[in-house]
Amino acid sequence: MTETLLSVRDLKVSYQVGKGSIDAVDGASFDVPRGSIVGLVGESGCGKTTVARALTRVIADNASITGGQILFDGQDIAALPEREMNALRWRDIAFIPQSAMNSLDPVYTVEYQLNEVLRRRGGLGRRQARARCEELFEMVGIEAGRLGDYPHQFSGGMRQRVAIALALALNPKLVIADEPVTALDVIVQRQILDQLRELQSMLGISVILVTHDISVVAYVCDRTVVMYAGRIAEAGPMDAVLMEPSHPYTMGLRNAFPDLKGAASGVLTPIEGAPPNLAFPPPGCRFAPRCPFAVETCTTQQPALGMVAPDHRVSCHRADEAAKLRQEAARTETWLADA
């Protein structure tokens, strides 16, 4: 048993749109160690959900995985026959969606939907399934008496707990949570994140937490993978990436979000401009059009994902100047001047 549960290597996913195609994920590589929470963070539209769904291989009708490997427990599940992949789903890889409201079937009770996975996928008998339902509800802090309720009878936060209970039902090795708290208010967000963290460490499972909110990553994650326009910008231990970012985009993200643990200044500076159209991505570094530190090579050559420290990778031509760039990035003018 290695320390790495999941290793995504050069993953490519594209969407067919009319006659053309969008390379929504264009060579993403990152690792998920066992027993850790990895935050996958980036602006809306950068390809986070596409990556998350590719890991389950339940993707949109017009999507296809066009390259790369997804090594799960040493096995490349990108190349697995559908039957074998389906056997893995939910038993080994479970999913917590953004909106538990829409992802629970409105016409069945929560118990029915738990039973569905426990019995059909987990092979449990009726009694065992009932006991497991009660156990799961206790784990997520809902009274067992509410098992017979329908999804619409729960509050938003409770529904998200139900979704967590569902995800944990079959003791998976990996839980992928796609924006699990985005739809909730801040106080409930904290509660759900605390619970997720607690259950994750209690059960020793791995979690990929997809979010556009860097403060969520700062709050619960062990590691961070920063995505930009379908590629990985920076990946490493959470503290290293967020406290001493080496990629200008990560530096910019940090300035743009409030409430970041240990963030010194109270001033928020957004990154000007918008991510590129993925149907016609710019050559070279995709962040170049918005990067205050872009130099000549940035617009012609794609930077490789290189090591800046053991376990910390960055895809930037000026990664070795990171310390200097961080100082400049801390100044608001840096981000205004360029636009």
Binding site: R91, D105, R121
Partner: peptide, 29 residues
Amino acid sequence: KEDFVTMARIKGLSNWSVVVRHAARNALL
């Protein structure tokens, strides 16, 4: 196209479960 149908697939449920138990049951209303 609803999320709960996609989720049924991510849960690894059989095609029959996905199409009949979830999609058809809701479409029937």
